Computed example of a mutant assay.
Amino acid sequence: MMQFSEQAAPDEVRAWEAFDLLATMVAVVQPDGTCLFANAVLESVVGLSRRTLVTRTLPEWFREPSALLEAIDAVSRNEFATRRFEGALRRAVVGHAEPLPVHIIVSQTEHSHSRILVEMIEIEQQTRQDREERALGQAQVTKELIRNLAHEIKNPLGGIRGAAQLLAMDLPSPELIEYTQVIIHEADRLQTLVDRLLAPHRKPHVVGDVNIHEVCERVRSLVLAEHSRGLRVERDYDASIPEFRGDREQLIQAVLNIVHNACQALNERIDEGDACITLRTRVSRQVTIGKQRFRLALELHIQDNGPGVPDSLRDRIFYPLVSGRDGGSGLGLTLAQTFVQQHQGTIECDSAPGRTVFKIVIPLP
């Protein structure tokens, strides 16, 4: 049974229990820093029960408590409605000796003089959310640019090809006709590239019930049929993940594009016989994607033991026409990102030599 201090009325505590639904750490304190309430995330991060936390002051869990005390005092005296600053939260969890860097937001409540709200956001989490928002914005700009550019290229291509065909009929020399064939061939190649750029925007979004493990198994069978030796594709599935509404074929293509990229990076290891790709599924709770909050989300990790993404490409791997190999179109990851974003999801990459992980996050019902 949750305990509360004498200063906190039972109806207050019941209202504060809504903070347990948040993914950030939240505490309600008095002007002297005494903790009246700590939400479930703060319990978990500090490593102490709510019953213990509400018998202590919140600032004592910070490496430099004076900054938090000053902010709480200033907000309680209405000098500021909100104060923001950085701090380091100490933890009682075994194995976490290092303080956790957090962004602290101290705000007034309805009872501004006696109840102060303190929200703590992990710096890494905030950085990730900022990165996701930038990626979504960049993807939208890129999509519009590609669509407009592709249409501008496509119109004159037809004229160039048609002119080359007419010219070939009037040329007497086979050598000159050969040049027109080069023009026609290159025009066709560019036409194919333009069609691929426009494909995600033309193809209708076919929504149905999707089992992510059926998607993974389809990709796994396709890849193993292509690489029957030297490559292991391991499964690490969470069988409790429910079905969700989505476009099965788009998701198969997205995962397949990422796995194909991994296979190309693993060429040397495949020859040596020790290449490995792991498909891992998990459920994540209280996830923020862009500016939207979701209670549950699917996480699909596609991990390989290849050489890693070069530093020069790491920030640009989802850009169109950016490829790390000769002859690559640079569209595989761009299309994968487009398909995932059409499911309100995100995709990101964490890479180091010997371990590269692409993580797809998609909201669940």
Rank of each mutant, 00 (worst) to 15 (best):
S312F: 11
A297T: 11
P242W: 02
E64S: 10
H96Q: 15
H151D: 02
H185R: 15
M2N: 14
R115L: 12
C216Q: 04
A225K: 07
D209K: 14
D20Q: 10
I302P: 00
D170S: 15
F4L: 13
V207R: 15
K359P: 01
Q108N: 04
I289C: 05
P10S: 10
P310T: 06
L53R: 06
L256D: 13
T142C: 03
K359A: 14
S5L: 10
F62R: 02
P365E: 13
R131G: 07
V309I: 15
P204T: 08
H111W: 12
E178K: 14
L300P: 05
T346M: 14
L224A: 02
I302R: 02
E110N: 13
D170E: 12
D315S: 14
R218L: 08
V233W: 01
D315N: 05
G324N: 02
S114M: 13
G158V: 02
Q126K: 15
R325L: 10
A352P: 08
Q286S: 13
A139Q: 14
W61E: 07
S284M: 12
R282W: 10
E43H: 08
R295L: 09
S44D: 15
L335G: 02
E299W: 03
Q165H: 10
Q140C: 09
Q30Y: 11
T24K: 00
L157W: 03
L331D: 02
G162F: 01
G33L: 03
V75Y: 01
G308Q: 00
R235C: 06
